[in-house]
Amino acid sequence: MAVLTLLGRRLGAAVLLLGVLSALTYGLLLAAPGGPEQVLLGGRPSTPETRAAIREQYHLDDPFPVRYARWLGDALHGDLGTSVYSREPVVTVIADRLPVTAGLAAYALVLTVVVGVPAGLLAAMRRGGRLDQGITLGSLAALSIPSFALSILLLYGFAVRLGWFPVFGEGRTLTERITHLTLPAVALAAAQAALVVRQMRAAALDLAASDFLTFARARGLPRRRVWTSYALRNAALPVLTVGGLLLAANLTGSVFVERAFGLHGLGALLIGAVGQKDIPVVQALVLLGGVIVVAVNLLIDLAYLVVDPRVRKGAAA
């Protein structure tokens, strides 16, 4: 029962967030300089007839709530309109660009988990030692450097000077894709991995002082077993929360990284569409961003339910 209430509350919050975000993005069309007709015409010369046709086609004479409801209804059916710039359906435009960004985000996520979790645990196990200090300092540096600044440094060091990686583009074959996306993924993952390291270290240290771990050690369980099956499971909770924030940050972070490395993903599409005032594409991308954030947060709530029996029982809701 407690589980259902919890999920219901979270779903309600998710719907509210998407509602506000979609109203905001839809409002952009009205607020854009030149008014909606000019935006939808894409700056092409117009006669009073074409303007009237545009008003008719997009129902611009209807009141705002009616238009918004119609747009939202279409969006829910998967019809996000037509790109003003390329005259193609927005869904097609986005689908073209999705693989690059999805690959980049997945690569960055793998790097974050593979590097961040062990490094955090290691720092906690060797608390106060050289290794711990090094990891803590490194994570602080990685956290402070903006992704675009890091991108430039990586480009200069590993692509221009050392020539290990390509400077530009996303590559065709799978292996090419992986080498092309390595530096961008590192730039995207650095700050996130740093956050995971800090969370993991703090959570593990908190746990190290707890009674059940002392008991596990007192029973003579091997150190590795104590850390992985006792500490890791409990440390997973705060790390999961951070993970959700990370994926949301991943979305916006990829905008900067794609720009720095000349990748043609969704981030580049967004910047291009913003520059060309291609409002239907912008609206669709913001909405997609919102949906991803909401979906990830719901998934994390579900993961909480799986990992933590206390949440299932409703004690720690």
Binding site: L17, V20, L21, L24, T25, L28, A31, A32, A248, L251, T252, V255, L270, I271, V274, G275, K277, I279, V282, V286, G289, G290, V293
Partner: peptide, 13 residues
């Protein structure tokens, strides 16, 4: 809210 996304879009448009 995905803040930076909103920021980019609002300022850009």
């Amino acid at each position: 809210m995905p803040g930076l996304l909103v920021l980019i879009v609002v300022v850009g448009v």
